[in-house]
Design a protein around this nucleic acid. Structure first.
Lengths: 226, 226
DNA sequence: GGATGTGAATGCATTCACAGCA
DNA sequence: TGCTGTGAATGCATTCACATCC
């Protein structure tokens, strides 16, 4: 993997997260027909500092034009390539409950190139029903379907109790990345990419800050704008 | 409210986030009738180091018992108090779309003491329909309903285009914390608590790491286990 | 022995400040 | 002049290592 084709830059983890935010904001600027944007402008809309934006973007490549700023179209293209979303990803979804149904019909996924190609549920009563254009498949069909669709990512929208078992199956089926909505810490192999959403945890964070007016200054709020 | 009784400790932002994870894990241990737990055990299940756990918990108070560990029931109670969830919070939800419907019926909220007390939507066609036991209210009723229910937090499940406008209304109605699901950076006053969920952004993070096998070592994955 | 709490050391991310280029 | 890219400085979070207590 050391080949020189993609000169392997070291982009820090928080920086990669912000690259997604820059991209999101750039697409908004693009919609408004902005041609170029400065680090300062980008920073202001996202609640960051201009130095931060420049550091991040410079760590990902040489995209800026001194005296001009960053060309919107150009930077969008570069960021998409770096994030690996200059293509379509097939994704499977496990859990045909309320959340699962909401996620299959979420337009934002498709707009970003993530396509749900199959839905699974452990409940035999749900297998065969239709969720977001997809017939719900049995868990036992997962290895075959993952192979056929070449899906490399999975979204887990299952109860906490079954999440670890489902994760194990998903990984065994060959998936390399998991977005976990279940409120439980998963044990997964090192080489698997894992992202987590726990809405209850996030409500607790709000509770903490709202309680006793322990509100944080704006400067500290930037990093959570994910 | 309690002035001196709560000596105002300085808990770092990442530490507060992890407190929620400790609590979540402790409740699992409690369900299994564990009476005490060591920093090492807590750390292992969450993919952290034992020193990290001790630092975090010590920064929040003196909860441990040398030679014993932490008493599960005791620590759960303390963490709930610190996070401000030793009570019930009334929450309003804006956006009666797929996601909004899924969230109103999410049991995990109620289990943690967050109760959705009203649902709003800007679409007059949706006003009056029932979503998760609640009749959908018009946006114009928000100030009154927030006052009456004493809701201090809001969940935004609206399209990106309308999110800023909705946020402004929610804030004007007196809400102090917002959980934003819309894929856009909100501009809010410093004193407002803001948490963000952008599932597309998180899929992009998966894409980045799955692409070209740029997978991160396990040690670096801990901080995302939120 | 077993486990916490914590100062000291380390490592990392952010911010500063400025050289350099358009 | 305007704006980027980047070494240097700072600040913060994590890890280490050990004194302390049951």
């Amino acid at each position: 993997m050391t080949d020189h084709s993609d000169r392997r830059r070291r982009i820090s983890i928080p920086a990669v997260r912000r690259l997604s935010l820059y991209l999101r904001q750039l697409e908004i600027f693009q919609l408004r027909n902005r041609k170029t944007v400065s680090s300062r402008q980008l920073a202001d809309t996202l609640g960051l500092t201009d130095a931060q934006v420049r550091k991040d973007l410079a760590s990902a490549g040489q995209f800026g034009h001194p005296g001009i700023g960053y060309r919107v179209d150009e930077l969008i293209k570069s960021l998409k390539h770096i994030l690996g979303i200059d293509r379509t990803w097939n994704v499977i979804l496990i859990g045909a409950g309320n959340l699962g149904r909401a996620l299959t019909s979420y337009r934002g996924f498709l707009k970003k190139g993530f396509q749900v190609v199959a839905v699974f549920d452990a409940d035999p009563g749900k297998v065969g029903t239709v969720v977001g254009n997809h017939p719900v498949s049995a868990m036992s069909d997962m290895p075959r379907i993952v192979r056929e669709t070449q899906a490399r990512m999975a979204i887990l929208a299952v109860p906490a109790e079954s999440a670890q078992g489902v994760a194990d199956q998903v990984i065994a089926a060959g998936v390399q990345g998991i977005l976990n909505f279940a409120p439980v810490a998963l044990t997964v192999p090192d080489e698997l990419a894992l992202e987590v959403v726990d809405v209850a945890v996030q409500m607790e964070q709000l509770s903490y800050r709202v309680t006793a007016k322990r509100l944080r200054p704006a400067s500290a709020r930037a990093d959570e704008d994910e």
